[in-house]
Amino acid sequence: MESILTISNLTKKFGYLTAVKDLSFTINKGNVYGILGPNGSGKSTTLGIVLNVVNKTQGDFYWFDGNITTHDALKKVGAIIERPNFYPYMTATQNLKLVCKIKGVDYAKIDEKLEIVGLLERKDSKFKTYSLGMKQRLAIASALLNDPEILILDEPTNGLDPQGIHQIREIIKQIAAKGTTILLASHLLDEVEKVCSHVVVLRKGVKLYSGRVDEMISSHGFFELKTNKQNELVALLENNVSFKNIKVEDGLVTAFLDSPMKSEDFNKYLFEKGIILTHLVQRKESLEEQFLQLTDNN
């Protein structure tokens, strides 16, 4: 598979603090990646390093096949980090013209990209008159100007209202649907879960996991159950070796599986034991639950 970004043994120290520690991973073409981690886990520092604004302490990274300087590679990358940064006294069009000049892109793209993020009718307003959501959408338009090989988004919905968050997510989904490689850093797990196929999980600068989202934890999922004979149910489950953990909360019994089991088999088994369920749901852990398990265990 064609690799877009390769990071090997990357380390960054700020004085005594090690923000990124011996980090290695590869971004391949066509996938949507999430970098997950609590605040201060080194997500932005890692992105800062590969985007040429933070100096690495040790290790290496290279873009594409490695035969291109970082700043030339960045002309084929679209990135927005943390806050949208533009010249406040210029209009959207003027700001994007400047980006076109830096990236060596034709001006014709400007209106096309403003259209995608829905800012076409405000294109001649000064940047400083924009709301935060509009600023963030302009940043996405700017990152898309060169039809990038990879789009890097660092906390793209930070500080936005629900509507703004929704708009940004819709835009990201559209872009992902077109086959653009995306690298999304976030601490908002449902955000990552909704769009990413692969994740890298970081904690205190150390990589805890990298790979497919659905393989993040080897887990068989769990059942959510309700019945009128709750005590009997719990007693039965606790004696069953297929379950490793039983939790009871507000009349809802959650039983975590230790080995695979189908819901119809489980239902039949309980019925034979004389327990009739009023509620049965089989689920896998959400990314949030997996993430918390992963970051707690280490």
């Binding site: 040429n52 604004v53 300087t69 700043h71 980090i81 940064n85 406040p88 830096i102």
Partner: peptide
Amino acid sequence: SNKTLKQNLIDGLSKKE
């Protein structure tokens, strides 16, 4: 102060440029 330096670099301008 506008952090546009950061953005310029990310957009592909080198520090030398």
